Simulated scan of single mutants.
Amino acid sequence: MSLRFKAVAVGAAVALAAASWTWFTPADAPAATVAFKHPGVLLSRAQLDFVKAKVKAGAEPWKSANAAMMSSSSASLSYTPKPRATVECGSSSNPDNGCTDERRDAFAAYTHALAWYYTGDSRYAAKSIQIMDAWSGTIKQHTDSNAPLQASWAASVWPRAAEIIRHTYASWPHAGRFGTMLRTVHLPQALANRAAYNGNWQLTQLEAAVGIGVHLDDRAVYDQAVATFRKRVPAYIHLTSDGALPKPPPGTSIDTRAEIVKYWNNQTTFVDGLSQETCRDFTHTGYGIAAVSHIAETSRIQGADLYPEVQERLRHAMGLHAKHSTGALPAWLCGGALANRKLGPVTEVGFNALSNRLGIAMTNTASLTAAQRPAGNNNLMSAWETLTHAGNPA
């Protein structure tokens, strides 16, 4: 297939996938604003500089968090990427043909990009580029049932690495090819309609689309993702002000009480901060919370801050799950029993934004966040967020 024909075919696929977001209309899109700020996916240059100064000064918790990152296998200068032309991922990554490899490599590229910025050692930048180039020169597609989620997990992280390298390092000859990979391989999967799935799916897809939009300077992709995000968050995190029942996920047929209760994993008592996936398990809920925090953080960097819009849902969600991550569950919550209540290292970004920047009291979230420091790398949604976001005012 010629490159020209291939580009046309992929462009058609992107357009078809975008059309599947039937609840998005032009009226939903914010008006075009100023140019994107770079680096600007999850981290700004001011945030990077703040951490660099703290690490240089040996201040905590950044010193310990940086030591944990630099001693990880993801920061090894001998790290070897494992790209594949086809990444095949079934349910729960079974089969796992390149799924774990791609996620690990994306986080390794991001880790090396951070190491480059904080140390000034160009070897880390070169390694980050090597990893990204290996994948952009190889991958063609994601397949099997988890393809949209896998592609979006990876594409939530790839742009973080790419933004730092492209906008702070002197040379990246194949940067354009990497951008083409994001647009043609990952973006169609991020735009696939999975509105009726568990909410962490679509929130992860939206995080990927937001990051891709910023990195490619594609205002249409970014605005579309943000417009959908603004409707999706209220259907994932409940507030009692919403009414007796949670909001139904937009663009789906889930709208009766029986359907909503089933979708919310048979929970029938709805309180502030309850998530659609709370009674599934806290880990998947954490993925959703992470995506909400990450998208809001990127929006703040880009000058159209979404935190004021989502802060009540986000603070209550983090607080409720932090409170119930240990101890006995009340009888009204998930029947009083839930096997998995491990939230994961997902609270640093939201806690910093809401508590440190906005001054909102968040006792339970503060306790859990401190207990999990330094936040590590879960190779799915979050990595090194104590280092990058703890107490970061920028």
Score class of each variant (00 low, 15 high):
292 V>G: 06
210 V>F: 03
121 D>I: 00
376 G>N: 06
326 T>W: 00
13 A>S: 14
268 T>D: 07
71 S>I: 05
25 T>A: 00
328 A>V: 08
179 G>T: 11
333 L>M: 12
78 S>V: 10
351 F>E: 00
25 T>R: 01
351 F>I: 00
165 I>F: 03
334 C>F: 03
305 D>R: 06
22 T>D: 11
9 A>W: 01
384 W>V: 02
232 R>N: 04
323 K>Q: 13
189 Q>P: 07
174 H>N: 15
116 W>G: 01
383 A>T: 05
313 R>I: 02
274 L>R: 11
181 M>Y: 11
375 A>S: 15
288 G>Y: 06
164 I>R: 05
309 E>R: 09
376 G>F: 09
292 V>L: 10
108 A>S: 11
387 L>H: 11
182 L>S: 08
140 K>L: 11
233 V>Y: 04
255 D>M: 04
95 P>F: 03
356 N>L: 01
225 A>S: 05
174 H>T: 15
32 A>E: 13
84 R>A: 04
168 T>K: 07
275 S>E: 12
84 R>Y: 09
179 G>V: 08
113 A>M: 03
159 P>L: 05
212 I>W: 02
59 A>K: 15
22 T>R: 14
128 S>L: 01
32 A>K: 05
259 E>F: 02
253 S>D: 08
52 K>I: 15
50 F>C: 14
135 W>Q: 07
284 H>E: 09
19 A>S: 14
65 A>Y: 13
261 V>M: 08
81 P>V: 06
196 A>G: 12
244 A>Y: 00
149 L>C: 13
11 G>N: 11
370 A>H: 10
22 T>K: 14
275 S>Q: 12
